[in-house]
Design a protein around this nucleic acid. Structure first.
Lengths: 191, 191
DNA sequence: AAACAAATATGATGATCATCATATGAGACG
DNA sequence: CGTCTCATATGATGATCATCATATTTGTTT
Protein backbone atom coordinates (compact mmCIF):
# COMPACT_ATOMS: atom_id res chain seq x y z
CA UNK A 1 0.00 0.00 0.00
CA UNK A 2 1.48 3.25 -1.13
CA UNK A 3 0.83 6.74 0.07
CA UNK A 4 -1.14 8.53 -2.60
CA UNK A 5 0.59 11.82 -2.07
CA UNK A 6 2.94 13.60 0.22
CA UNK A 7 1.30 14.41 3.50
CA UNK A 8 2.85 16.22 6.36
CA UNK A 9 2.68 14.48 9.66
CA UNK A 10 0.49 17.25 11.00
CA UNK A 11 -2.10 16.78 8.28
CA UNK A 12 -2.24 13.07 9.04
CA UNK A 13 -2.57 13.76 12.76
CA UNK A 14 -5.43 16.09 11.95
CA UNK A 15 -7.11 13.46 9.83
CA UNK A 16 -6.87 10.85 12.58
CA UNK A 17 -8.37 13.23 15.14
CA UNK A 18 -11.19 14.15 12.80
CA UNK A 19 -11.90 10.49 12.08
CA UNK A 20 -11.82 9.67 15.78
CA UNK A 21 -14.15 12.55 16.63
CA UNK A 22 -16.74 10.93 14.40
CA UNK A 23 -15.98 7.35 15.45
CA UNK A 24 -16.42 7.95 19.18
CA UNK A 25 -19.80 9.57 18.65
CA UNK A 26 -20.87 6.64 16.48
CA UNK A 27 -19.46 3.75 18.53
CA UNK A 28 -18.70 5.18 21.95
CA UNK A 29 -15.34 5.54 23.70
CA UNK A 30 -15.17 1.86 24.61
CA UNK A 31 -16.40 0.74 21.23
CA UNK A 32 -13.70 2.51 19.27
CA UNK A 33 -10.38 0.70 18.86
CA UNK A 34 -7.11 2.21 17.73
CA UNK A 35 -7.08 -0.12 14.72
CA UNK A 36 -10.64 0.89 13.76
CA UNK A 37 -9.78 4.55 13.68
CA UNK A 38 -6.55 4.10 11.78
CA UNK A 39 -8.23 1.95 9.16
CA UNK A 40 -11.05 4.48 8.79
CA UNK A 41 -8.42 7.16 8.32
CA UNK A 42 -6.79 5.07 5.58
CA UNK A 43 -3.75 4.03 7.63
CA UNK A 44 -2.49 0.96 9.43
CA UNK A 45 -2.53 0.58 13.17
CA UNK A 46 1.23 0.57 13.67
CA UNK A 47 1.88 4.22 12.98
CA UNK A 48 -0.56 5.34 15.65
CA UNK A 49 2.00 5.90 18.38
CA UNK A 50 4.01 8.21 16.17
CA UNK A 51 1.06 10.59 16.51
CA UNK A 52 -0.21 10.08 20.06
CA UNK A 53 1.30 9.26 23.42
CA UNK A 54 -1.54 6.87 24.17
CA UNK A 55 -5.04 5.92 23.14
CA UNK A 56 -6.37 8.10 25.94
CA UNK A 57 -4.48 11.14 24.70
CA UNK A 58 -6.06 10.62 21.29
CA UNK A 59 -9.53 10.30 22.82
CA UNK A 60 -8.99 13.58 24.61
CA UNK A 61 -8.10 15.30 21.35
CA UNK A 62 -11.06 13.70 19.61
CA UNK A 63 -13.48 14.72 22.36
CA UNK A 64 -12.15 18.26 22.27
CA UNK A 65 -12.54 18.35 18.51
CA UNK A 66 -16.11 17.08 18.62
CA UNK A 67 -16.97 19.66 21.26
CA UNK A 68 -15.34 22.47 19.35
CA UNK A 69 -17.28 21.57 16.22
CA UNK A 70 -20.56 21.53 18.11
CA UNK A 71 -19.86 24.94 19.66
CA UNK A 72 -18.88 26.35 16.28
CA UNK A 73 -22.02 25.05 14.61
CA UNK A 74 -24.29 26.42 17.34
CA UNK A 75 -22.56 29.76 17.22
CA UNK A 76 -23.01 29.89 13.48
CA UNK A 77 -26.71 29.02 13.71
CA UNK A 78 -27.24 31.73 16.30
CA UNK A 79 -25.31 34.28 14.27
CA UNK A 80 -27.21 33.71 11.04
CA UNK A 81 -30.69 33.54 12.62
CA UNK A 82 -33.08 36.51 12.76
CA UNK A 83 -31.91 38.40 15.85
CA UNK A 84 -34.90 37.58 18.07
CA UNK A 85 -35.12 33.94 17.00
CA UNK A 86 -31.57 32.78 17.65
CA UNK A 87 -32.42 30.51 20.59
CA UNK A 88 -35.43 29.05 18.77
CA UNK A 89 -33.28 28.24 15.75
CA UNK A 90 -30.62 26.56 17.90
CA UNK A 91 -33.21 24.49 19.74
CA UNK A 92 -34.94 23.49 16.51
CA UNK A 93 -31.67 22.40 14.91
CA UNK A 94 -30.75 20.43 18.02
CA UNK A 95 -34.11 18.70 18.38
CA UNK A 96 -34.37 17.85 14.69
CA UNK A 97 -34.72 14.44 13.08
CA UNK A 98 -31.43 15.01 11.27
CA UNK A 99 -29.63 15.37 14.58
CA UNK A 100 -31.47 12.36 16.01
CA UNK A 101 -30.25 10.20 13.15
CA UNK A 102 -26.75 11.64 12.84
CA UNK A 103 -25.15 11.20 16.21
CA UNK A 104 -21.77 10.85 14.51
CA UNK A 105 -21.83 14.49 13.44
CA UNK A 106 -23.85 15.85 16.36
CA UNK A 107 -23.61 16.87 19.98
CA UNK A 108 -20.95 14.84 21.78
CA UNK A 109 -22.71 15.21 25.13
CA UNK A 110 -25.80 13.49 23.76
CA UNK A 111 -23.65 10.86 22.06
CA UNK A 112 -21.18 10.21 24.88
CA UNK A 113 -22.63 11.77 28.03
CA UNK A 114 -23.16 8.66 30.08
CA UNK A 115 -19.70 7.33 29.22
CA UNK A 116 -17.97 10.51 30.40
CA UNK A 117 -17.71 9.70 34.13
CA UNK A 118 -15.41 6.77 33.34
CA UNK A 119 -13.08 8.59 30.97
CA UNK A 120 -9.51 9.67 31.61
CA UNK A 121 -9.08 13.05 33.34
CA UNK A 122 -7.76 14.65 30.16
CA UNK A 123 -10.91 13.59 28.29
CA UNK A 124 -13.25 14.92 30.96
CA UNK A 125 -11.31 18.14 31.19
CA UNK A 126 -11.66 18.86 27.48
CA UNK A 127 -15.33 17.91 27.54
CA UNK A 128 -16.05 20.14 30.54
CA UNK A 129 -14.46 23.12 28.85
CA UNK A 130 -16.54 22.65 25.71
CA UNK A 131 -19.72 22.13 27.73
CA UNK A 132 -19.14 25.45 29.48
CA UNK A 133 -18.65 27.13 26.12
CA UNK A 134 -21.89 25.61 24.87
CA UNK A 135 -23.80 26.82 27.91
CA UNK A 136 -22.44 30.31 27.33
CA UNK A 137 -23.57 30.24 23.71
CA UNK A 138 -27.07 29.36 24.90
CA UNK A 139 -27.07 31.97 27.68
CA UNK A 140 -26.10 34.72 25.23
CA UNK A 141 -29.27 34.10 23.20
CA UNK A 142 -31.50 34.72 26.20
CA UNK A 143 -33.61 37.91 25.97
CA UNK A 144 -32.33 38.88 29.44
CA UNK A 145 -28.68 38.04 28.90
CA UNK A 146 -26.61 39.40 31.75
CA UNK A 147 -29.42 39.32 34.28
CA UNK A 148 -28.92 36.85 37.11
CA UNK A 149 -31.34 34.16 35.99
CA UNK A 150 -30.15 33.88 32.40
CA UNK A 151 -27.24 31.57 33.11
CA UNK A 152 -29.35 29.33 35.34
CA UNK A 153 -31.98 29.19 32.61
CA UNK A 154 -29.30 28.22 30.08
CA UNK A 155 -28.25 25.29 32.28
CA UNK A 156 -31.81 23.99 32.33
CA UNK A 157 -32.25 24.52 28.61
CA UNK A 158 -29.04 22.65 27.82
CA UNK A 159 -29.97 19.78 30.12
CA UNK A 160 -33.41 19.49 28.57
CA UNK A 161 -31.98 19.40 25.07
CA UNK A 162 -29.37 16.80 25.98
CA UNK A 163 -31.80 14.64 27.94
CA UNK A 164 -34.37 14.75 25.17
CA UNK A 165 -31.85 13.65 22.53
CA UNK A 166 -30.39 10.91 24.74
CA UNK A 167 -33.82 9.49 25.47
CA UNK A 168 -35.10 9.87 21.91
CA UNK A 169 -32.09 7.91 20.66
CA UNK A 170 -32.22 5.36 23.45
CA UNK A 171 -35.73 4.05 22.88
CA UNK A 172 -36.59 1.68 20.04
CA UNK A 173 -40.04 3.16 19.43
CA UNK A 174 -40.00 5.91 16.80
CA UNK A 175 -43.34 7.23 18.02
CA UNK A 176 -41.89 7.85 21.46
CA UNK A 177 -38.78 9.45 19.95
CA UNK A 178 -41.00 11.81 17.99
CA UNK A 179 -43.13 12.59 21.02
CA UNK A 180 -40.04 13.44 23.07
CA UNK A 181 -38.68 15.80 20.42
CA UNK A 182 -42.08 17.43 19.89
CA UNK A 183 -42.74 17.91 23.59
CA UNK A 184 -39.34 19.51 24.15
CA UNK A 185 -39.77 21.71 21.07
CA UNK A 186 -43.14 22.94 22.35
CA UNK A 187 -41.56 23.63 25.70
CA UNK A 188 -38.33 25.32 24.59
CA UNK A 189 -39.20 26.88 21.26
CA UNK A 190 -42.99 27.33 21.05
CA UNK A 191 -44.23 28.04 17.54
CA UNK B 1 -13.44 -23.10 46.27
CA UNK B 2 -16.55 -24.59 47.83
CA UNK B 3 -20.07 -23.33 47.79
CA UNK B 4 -20.92 -22.14 51.26
CA UNK B 5 -24.44 -23.41 51.17
CA UNK B 6 -27.00 -25.02 48.93
CA UNK B 7 -28.34 -22.59 46.38
CA UNK B 8 -30.93 -23.28 43.79
CA UNK B 9 -30.05 -22.39 40.25
CA UNK B 10 -32.77 -19.78 40.19
CA UNK B 11 -31.35 -17.99 43.19
CA UNK B 12 -27.92 -17.91 41.56
CA UNK B 13 -29.41 -16.62 38.31
CA UNK B 14 -31.13 -13.92 40.32
CA UNK B 15 -27.90 -13.00 42.03
CA UNK B 16 -26.04 -12.72 38.74
CA UNK B 17 -28.74 -10.47 37.26
CA UNK B 18 -28.74 -8.28 40.34
CA UNK B 19 -24.94 -8.02 40.25
CA UNK B 20 -25.01 -7.21 36.55
CA UNK B 21 -27.71 -4.56 37.01
CA UNK B 22 -25.29 -2.74 39.28
CA UNK B 23 -22.19 -3.44 37.20
CA UNK B 24 -23.57 -2.04 33.95
CA UNK B 25 -24.58 1.21 35.64
CA UNK B 26 -21.12 1.50 37.17
CA UNK B 27 -18.99 0.46 34.19
CA UNK B 28 -21.26 0.69 31.15
CA UNK B 29 -22.41 -2.09 28.85
CA UNK B 30 -19.09 -2.26 27.02
CA UNK B 31 -17.08 -1.99 30.20
CA UNK B 32 -18.66 -4.98 31.87
CA UNK B 33 -17.24 -8.40 31.03
CA UNK B 34 -18.84 -11.75 31.73
CA UNK B 35 -15.92 -12.70 33.95
CA UNK B 36 -16.21 -9.43 35.92
CA UNK B 37 -19.84 -10.04 36.75
CA UNK B 38 -19.36 -13.67 37.68
CA UNK B 39 -16.47 -12.84 39.97
CA UNK B 40 -18.47 -10.05 41.60
CA UNK B 41 -21.30 -12.54 42.13
CA UNK B 42 -18.84 -14.92 43.81
CA UNK B 43 -18.69 -17.39 40.92
CA UNK B 44 -16.29 -18.36 38.16
CA UNK B 45 -16.77 -17.42 34.55
CA UNK B 46 -17.38 -20.93 33.21
CA UNK B 47 -20.81 -21.49 34.64
CA UNK B 48 -22.20 -18.41 32.99
CA UNK B 49 -23.70 -20.15 29.99
CA UNK B 50 -25.66 -22.48 32.19
CA UNK B 51 -27.65 -19.39 33.16
CA UNK B 52 -27.84 -17.31 29.98
CA UNK B 53 -28.01 -17.98 26.27
CA UNK B 54 -25.53 -15.21 25.59
CA UNK B 55 -23.94 -12.15 27.12
CA UNK B 56 -26.53 -10.02 25.35
CA UNK B 57 -29.41 -11.97 26.85
CA UNK B 58 -27.94 -11.33 30.28
CA UNK B 59 -27.52 -7.61 29.56
CA UNK B 60 -31.18 -7.47 28.58
CA UNK B 61 -32.20 -9.04 31.88
CA UNK B 62 -29.89 -6.71 33.79
CA UNK B 63 -31.20 -3.62 32.01
CA UNK B 64 -34.75 -4.71 32.68
CA UNK B 65 -33.94 -5.28 36.33
CA UNK B 66 -32.30 -1.90 36.72
CA UNK B 67 -35.28 -0.22 35.08
CA UNK B 68 -37.77 -2.10 37.23
CA UNK B 69 -35.93 -1.06 40.38
CA UNK B 70 -35.93 2.58 39.34
CA UNK B 71 -39.64 2.50 38.57
CA UNK B 72 -40.37 0.79 41.88
CA UNK B 73 -38.33 3.32 43.84
CA UNK B 74 -40.00 6.28 42.14
CA UNK B 75 -43.43 4.79 42.69
CA UNK B 76 -42.63 4.29 46.35
CA UNK B 77 -41.38 7.86 46.76
CA UNK B 78 -44.52 9.21 45.12
CA UNK B 79 -46.78 7.00 47.21
CA UNK B 80 -45.24 7.98 50.55
CA UNK B 81 -45.01 11.72 49.83
CA UNK B 82 -47.59 14.24 50.98
CA UNK B 83 -50.28 14.05 48.29
CA UNK B 84 -49.63 17.43 46.69
CA UNK B 85 -45.83 17.13 46.82
CA UNK B 86 -45.32 13.79 45.11
CA UNK B 87 -43.70 15.22 41.98
CA UNK B 88 -41.49 17.57 44.00
CA UNK B 89 -40.29 14.66 46.15
CA UNK B 90 -39.49 12.55 43.12
CA UNK B 91 -37.59 15.37 41.46
CA UNK B 92 -35.67 16.17 44.64
CA UNK B 93 -34.65 12.54 45.10
CA UNK B 94 -33.58 12.31 41.48
CA UNK B 95 -31.57 15.53 41.47
CA UNK B 96 -29.87 14.79 44.79
CA UNK B 97 -26.18 14.51 45.51
CA UNK B 98 -26.72 10.91 46.61
CA UNK B 99 -28.03 10.03 43.18
CA UNK B 100 -25.24 11.97 41.50
CA UNK B 101 -22.65 9.93 43.36
CA UNK B 102 -24.39 6.57 43.21
CA UNK B 103 -24.93 5.85 39.56
CA UNK B 104 -24.62 2.14 40.29
CA UNK B 105 -27.89 2.16 42.23
CA UNK B 106 -29.60 4.94 40.30
CA UNK B 107 -31.46 5.70 37.11
CA UNK B 108 -30.26 3.44 34.29
CA UNK B 109 -31.16 6.01 31.65
CA UNK B 110 -28.80 8.53 33.20
CA UNK B 111 -26.12 5.86 33.65
CA UNK B 112 -26.45 4.15 30.26
CA UNK B 113 -28.50 6.43 28.03
CA UNK B 114 -25.91 7.27 25.43
CA UNK B 115 -24.86 3.62 25.10
CA UNK B 116 -28.41 2.46 24.42
CA UNK B 117 -28.52 3.09 20.64
CA UNK B 118 -25.79 0.47 20.13
CA UNK B 119 -27.28 -2.27 22.27
CA UNK B 120 -28.94 -5.47 21.13
CA UNK B 121 -32.65 -5.23 20.25
CA UNK B 122 -33.64 -7.20 23.34
CA UNK B 123 -31.80 -4.70 25.56
CA UNK B 124 -33.40 -1.68 23.91
CA UNK B 125 -36.81 -3.28 24.08
CA UNK B 126 -36.60 -3.82 27.82
CA UNK B 127 -35.24 -0.33 28.37
CA UNK B 128 -37.98 1.25 26.28
CA UNK B 129 -40.67 -0.51 28.25
CA UNK B 130 -39.24 0.66 31.56
CA UNK B 131 -38.81 4.20 30.26
CA UNK B 132 -42.49 4.31 29.31
CA UNK B 133 -43.41 3.09 32.78
CA UNK B 134 -41.26 5.80 34.32
CA UNK B 135 -42.87 8.50 32.20
CA UNK B 136 -46.29 7.26 33.31
CA UNK B 137 -45.23 7.44 36.96
CA UNK B 138 -44.24 11.06 36.42
CA UNK B 139 -47.38 11.92 34.46
CA UNK B 140 -49.59 10.56 37.24
CA UNK B 141 -48.13 13.07 39.69
CA UNK B 142 -49.16 16.02 37.54
CA UNK B 143 -51.90 18.20 39.04
CA UNK B 144 -53.81 17.90 35.77
CA UNK B 145 -53.33 14.19 35.20
CA UNK B 146 -55.55 13.02 32.40
CA UNK B 147 -55.71 16.37 30.66
CA UNK B 148 -54.06 16.44 27.23
CA UNK B 149 -50.86 18.30 28.18
CA UNK B 150 -49.92 16.21 31.19
CA UNK B 151 -48.22 13.43 29.28
CA UNK B 152 -46.30 15.91 27.12
CA UNK B 153 -45.22 17.72 30.25
CA UNK B 154 -44.04 14.45 31.76
CA UNK B 155 -41.84 13.81 28.72
CA UNK B 156 -40.17 17.17 29.16
CA UNK B 157 -39.76 16.69 32.89
CA UNK B 158 -38.17 13.26 32.43
CA UNK B 159 -35.82 14.56 29.75
CA UNK B 160 -34.76 17.49 31.92
CA UNK B 161 -34.04 15.22 34.88
CA UNK B 162 -32.05 12.76 32.77
CA UNK B 163 -30.11 15.46 30.93
CA UNK B 164 -29.27 17.24 34.16
CA UNK B 165 -27.93 14.08 35.78
CA UNK B 166 -25.97 13.05 32.67
CA UNK B 167 -24.32 16.46 32.41
CA UNK B 168 -23.71 16.82 36.15
CA UNK B 169 -21.91 13.47 36.15
CA UNK B 170 -20.07 14.13 32.90
CA UNK B 171 -18.25 17.29 33.92
CA UNK B 172 -15.20 17.26 36.18
CA UNK B 173 -16.08 20.53 37.91
CA UNK B 174 -18.14 19.99 41.09
CA UNK B 175 -19.28 23.64 41.03
CA UNK B 176 -20.83 23.13 37.62
CA UNK B 177 -22.41 19.84 38.73
CA UNK B 178 -23.98 21.65 41.67
CA UNK B 179 -25.17 24.51 39.51
CA UNK B 180 -26.83 22.11 37.09
CA UNK B 181 -28.66 20.29 39.86
CA UNK B 182 -29.71 23.53 41.54
CA UNK B 183 -30.93 25.12 38.35
CA UNK B 184 -33.02 22.09 37.45
CA UNK B 185 -34.39 21.87 40.99
CA UNK B 186 -35.45 25.51 40.87
CA UNK B 187 -37.08 24.88 37.53
CA UNK B 188 -38.86 21.59 38.26
CA UNK B 189 -39.50 21.70 42.00
CA UNK B 190 -39.40 25.32 43.16
CA UNK B 191 -39.13 25.69 46.93
C1' DA C 1 -22.63 -45.27 52.50
C1' DA C 2 -22.77 -45.44 47.35
C1' DA C 3 -24.32 -43.62 43.23
C1' DC C 4 -26.68 -40.26 40.58
C1' DA C 5 -28.10 -35.67 38.86
C1' DA C 6 -27.64 -31.01 38.77
C1' DA C 7 -24.79 -26.91 39.57
C1' DT C 8 -20.53 -24.91 39.30
C1' DA C 9 -15.34 -24.92 38.36
C1' DT C 10 -11.27 -25.61 35.39
C1' DG C 11 -9.17 -24.98 31.43
C1' DA C 12 -8.94 -24.25 26.39
C1' DT C 13 -9.88 -21.73 21.91
C1' DG C 14 -9.79 -18.22 18.73
C1' DA C 15 -10.68 -13.35 18.37
C1' DT C 16 -9.56 -8.70 19.48
C1' DC C 17 -7.04 -5.30 21.86
C1' DA C 18 -3.16 -1.60 23.11
C1' DT C 19 1.39 -1.12 22.57
C1' DC C 20 5.95 -1.46 20.69
C1' DA C 21 10.14 -2.95 17.79
C1' DT C 22 11.64 -2.95 13.45
C1' DA C 23 11.32 -2.76 8.31
C1' DT C 24 10.10 -0.23 4.13
C1' DG C 25 9.57 3.21 0.99
C1' DA C 26 9.00 8.03 -0.46
C1' DG C 27 10.49 12.76 -0.76
C1' DA C 28 14.35 15.98 -0.03
C1' DC C 29 18.78 17.22 -0.86
C1' DG C 30 23.35 16.59 -2.27
C1' DC D 1 21.47 9.67 -9.51
C1' DG D 2 22.34 8.32 -4.82
C1' DT D 3 21.72 8.76 -0.01
C1' DC D 4 19.51 10.16 4.15
C1' DT D 5 15.58 11.02 7.00
C1' DC D 6 11.23 10.52 8.46
C1' DA D 7 6.40 8.96 7.97
C1' DT D 8 4.08 4.95 7.70
C1' DA D 9 3.71 -0.31 7.35
C1' DT D 10 4.54 -5.01 8.97
C1' DG D 11 4.55 -7.98 12.40
C1' DA D 12 4.98 -9.49 17.24
C1' DT D 13 3.66 -9.57 22.29
C1' DG D 14 0.97 -10.26 26.17
C1' DA D 15 -3.55 -9.19 27.94
C1' DT D 16 -8.43 -9.67 27.85
C1' DC D 17 -12.58 -11.26 25.90
C1' DA D 18 -16.93 -14.44 24.81
C1' DT D 19 -17.85 -18.96 24.39
C1' DC D 20 -17.62 -23.85 25.03
C1' DA D 21 -16.04 -28.71 26.42
C1' DT D 22 -15.12 -31.19 30.18
C1' DA D 23 -14.16 -32.10 35.08
C1' DT D 24 -15.47 -31.71 39.85
C1' DT D 25 -18.31 -31.10 43.68
C1' DT D 26 -22.59 -30.99 46.25
C1' DG D 27 -27.20 -32.44 47.73
C1' DT D 28 -30.16 -36.13 47.13
C1' DT D 29 -31.73 -40.66 46.56
C1' DT D 30 -31.19 -45.28 47.43
Amino acid sequence: MRRVTTRSKEATHERIVETAARAIRRSGYDGTSVADIMKEAGLTHGGFYAHFLSREAMLAEAADRAGAEAVALSTHIAATAPPDEALQCMVRAYLSKEHLENAEMGCPVAALGSEMPRQAPEVRKAATRRIKEMIDVIARQSPDWGQPGAHQQALVTAATMVGTMVMARAVDDPKLSDALLEAALDHLAPA
